[in-house]
Design a binder for these strands. Structure first.
Length: 205
DNA sequence: GTGCGGATGAACT
DNA sequence: GTTCATCCGCACT
């Protein structure tokens, strides 16, 4: 099983049921993609937790089961990637056991490996926040799209996986999630987590 | 079959 | 601060 900096996160990590804790623990982990054009890796600096069935912002609120949400009910360790605003592919990590439709949205990454390829994919000349700050741009930098939806990152060779290299950030900040005003009282839940002072954290509108 | 709006980003003013 | 690109999922007929 290919790794580049540490060991891959395993089922024991992904399949715990507290998605809000896991969203915090994902900060500092390294997300890797390996496509024919090259391998790239970035450290996760911003996440959001989405929990079924009680969270109104979660696509699987009340365990709603549709063609789109069915992958959320798979075992922790699968990807959930969907198209938002008809343009942006948003990358989520499914957590919990089979039937628990929890997801963690990756919202910010700090490039570590393959920065040049990420810059090319983003059509940028030099390194800056626009390479990885925001859920849409980070998917573009990593080269992921809906085609990688439902990837099981626990199997042998996958185009996308997450590693733990032992690194942890010191100061984590919690705040309300972005872009979910419709979610009523759930809109205020402080389930967005980010690294204090890191420039690859997205900016609220 | 149709209509609405969204877990956004970029380019404007 | 505002506008717009762009399209699928979902609810409803």
């Amino acid at each position: 099983m290919t790794t580049v900096l540490g060991k891959r996160l395993d089922s024991a990590f992904y399949q715990r049921s507290d998605v809000v804790v896991l969203a915090q623990e994902l900060l500092g982990k390294v997300i890797v993609t390996n496509f024919p054009e090259g391998l790239v890796a970035g450290r996760i600096v911003e996440t959001e937790a989405y929990r079924a069935p009680d969270d109104k912002a979660c696509h699987a609120h009340l365990n709603r089961f549709t063609e789109r949400t069915k992958v959320m009910f798979l075992a922790g360790g699968h990807t959930y990637i969907y198209l938002c605003y008809g343009i942006h592919h948003l990358l989520n990590i499914i957590t919990g056991s089979v039937g628990e439709a929890h997801a963690i949205l990756i919202r910010g990454i700090e490039p570590i490996i393959g920065t040049d390829l990420m810059l090319r994919r983003r059509k940028l000349a030099k390194l800056g926040p626009r390479i990885g700050a925001g859920p849409g741009v980070l998917s573009q930098a990593l080269g992921v799209s809906k085609q990688q939806n439902a990837t099981n990152m626990l199997t042998e060779e996958t185009p996308i996986w997450i590693e733990d290299d032992g690194f942890t950030f010191r100061e984590i900040i919690a705040g309300p999630r972005i872009g979910i005003d419709y979610a009523e009282e759930c809109a205020d839940w402080p389930w967005r987590f980010y690294v204090s002072g890191n420039r690859f954290v997205s900016k609220p509108r």
